[in-house]
Design a binder for these strands. Structure first.
Length: 561
DNA sequence: GCTCTTTGCGCG
DNA sequence: AAAGCGCGCAAAGAGC
């Protein structure tokens, strides 16, 4: 059963529709204030809520204490259907293409423009003149068009695409739920870490004591009393004056030199990073009442990975993970899909030889034993190089060796690279396709002069590396979305049964964090493992490739891994 | 003054 | 540790 939820002048409008998007009942207009109660009541029928964007509705419902089971996010699903190779022949995709000027990366139809940053709590109020909300009829038309496009996909692809749309919509709900619950974060512990590294909190706009001391030391060693070590240009000039001939001020390049300034300089850079990116200002801005509440952007990456907005949620550095701490009587369960991308490649390419190597917990060790004389480091470099498209360095040199042992796996990514170089799109396992080449790229490929030709070849190879990586990263993102959606379902089931259960609080590409009361830990671990297995079967069926999950039960995040 | 780009580094 | 993929963010630098 599908229930459409659309903005309306008097609040919201709700209408029951068929799977094909036909209205099967009259619309019902509900005021903003009574919406949570009405939605909660209707949820008993276990509908799939169809709305333009999850973040327009769900955060405020959660704030009102209403959790929902499933939805269809028209904006996210529309973006997938407009570009998927599986529906490229449909009117839906063709119309979307007509409406986009350049690279086709914009969402289709009425779904533009994309979301403004959503202010929690303001969502049921007047959306303002900035953007007219799509009405019920518009949404119904859009939903019908999407459902029609879906059934036109080739029979063997339709199930996958349907799964992708469901998983994408589920993760949109999960992102809202995670933002609602927040990551358990102890301000006190964070401040202790900062004080330990940087000294006491300085007045706003000032360097902390330890940074100030290092800065003075750098100025003295480099005989540059006005040096600003935060300015790459200034720093580079000072280094050159002292005979340190670097081309940039990057860490790894500075490490080449043995000059006495290097050690304090690297120490300065490290501490400066901590201060500016995750210091007191960050803590004040992003952590409230023991929770870090970042904004996740589902579908924010072309490959299907999440992005985030504000707070650097997907870049929590290792040195402050100690501040992520479970509540009393609770644990953090941190689960990581081991070597996800290589394993996804094995499954995509159906490389039986590499599947043998992946039988054990450590895939790289297995590959090392089969073709690299037991040298695990070499095997890892070679395999990652194949996925990323390395051409030079050790990684590039190891490619022929890897290709001899695993022609199917290497052939699979090579094909994706050739597709990209030729301007074709590539597609993830469940049907998310890479963006088509831009007009500028296509123009470059028709260039004539030798100089232009060299540039065009370089652009073509660059696109090849992108599409090569896309098929693996995108399919890994497919897997992770299914893992997450399955896990959410199991945690909800536990709760519905009245059993102890945990709460999803963080997700990072191939890693999830569940915050759970002590007595729920075992059940949560089982749910995480079952979900990983379910995700594999959903994507690939019953194939002999394992997707092992490593799980740590800890009090604080720094104790995981 | 303001906005946009570049540099460098954090994460997977 | 790498130089090959995908991101976000802070501060400096460049341009209007």
């Amino acid at each position: 059963m599908y229930l459409l939820l659309a903005a309306h002048a008097d609040g919201a409008a709700i209408q029951r529709v068929s799977p094909a998007g036909k209205a099967t009942a009259d619309a019902r207009v509900v005021s903003a204030s009574e919406l949570p109660d009405v939605v909660h009541e209707l949820e008993a029928q276990r509908p799939r809520w169809v709305w333009l964007r999850t973040q327009d509705w769900y955060p405020a419902l959660l704030a009102a204490g209403v959790e929902l089971e499933r939805c269809h996010d028209l904006a996210l699903c529309g973006a997938i259907l407009a570009h998927s190779e599986f529906t490229a022949h449909t009117n839906y995709a063709l119309n979307a293409e007509k409406l986009t000027q350049d690279d086709g990366s914009q969402p289709p139809r009425a779904l533009q423009p994309p979301a403004p940053p959503a202010e929690q709590g303001a969502l049921f109020e007047d959306p303002g003149p900035r953007q007219a909300q799509a009405g019920l009829e518009e949404l119904r038309t859009e939903f019908a068009a999407q459902q029609h496009a879906l059934v036109q996909a080739p029979a063997d692809k339709q199930k996958r695409l349907q799964l992708l749309l469901a998983a994408e919509s589920a993760t949109a709900m999960i992102a809202a739920e995670m933002q609602h619950s927040g990551v358990p974060w102890r301000e006190q512990l964070h401040e202790e870490i900062l004080a330990g590294h940087l000294g006491p909190r300085p007045p706003a706009g000032h360097r902390p004591a330890k940074l100030e001391a290092l800065c003075a030391e750098l100025r003295s060693i480099l005989k540059s009393p006005n040096l600003n070590p935060d300015s790459p240009q200034d720093l580079m000039r000072a280094l050159h004056r002292n005979g340190i001939e670097v081309k940039s001020t990057r860490q790894w390049e500075l490490q080449e030199s043995s000059h006495p300034v290097i050690e304090p300089l690297l120490a300065y850079k490290k501490l400066s990073r901590l201060h500016t990116a995750n210091g007191w200002a960050w803590l004040d801005t992003w952590v409230r009442d023991g929770r870090f509440r970042p904004e996740y952007v589902v579908g924010g990456v072309v490959s299907g990975r999440w992005a985030s907005r504000g707070g650097g949620a997907l870049q929590i550095p290792r040195n402050i993970r100690g501040a992520v701490h479970a509540d009393p009587g609770h644990k953090l369960i941190v689960a990581d899909a081991s070597q996800l991308e290589p394993r996804v490649l094995v499954a995509l390419a159906q490389d039986t030889k590499m599947a043998e190597a992946a039988r054990g917990k450590d895939l790289y060790a297995g590959i090392a034993a089969q073709g690299f004389g037991g040298d695990r480091a070499k095997a890892k470099i070679a395999l990652l190089g194949a996925i990323y498209g390395a051409t030079t360095g050790e990684s590039g040199r190891l490619m022929p060796q890897l290709a001899r042992t695993y022609p199917r796996a290497v052939g699979f990514v090579e094909q994706a690279a050739r597709d990209g170089e030729a301007g074709r799109t590539v597609t993830s396992r469940l049907g998310r396709s890479s963006p088509p080449p831009s007009q500028g790229w296509l123009r470059s490929q028709r260039s004539t002069t030798a100089e232009e030709q060299r540039r065009a070849d370089s652009l073509a190879r660059s696109r090849g590396r992108f599409t090569r990586n896309f098929v693996v990263q995108g399919s890994a993102a497919d897997w992770a979305s299914c893992w997450l959606a399955e896990l959410r379902r199991r945690l909800r089931t536990l709760r519905a049964e009245g059993s102890p259960s945990g709460e999803l609080v963080f997700f990072l590409h191939d890693e999830v964090m569940v915050h759970a009361p002590d007595d729920a830990v075992d059940a949560c671990i089982r749910a995480i493992e079952e979900s990983a297995n379910a995700a594999k079967e959903l994507l690939f069926g019953a194939i002999p490739v394992e997707f092992p999950v490593s799980i740590a039960v800890v009090d604080s995040y720094d104790k995981a891994k």
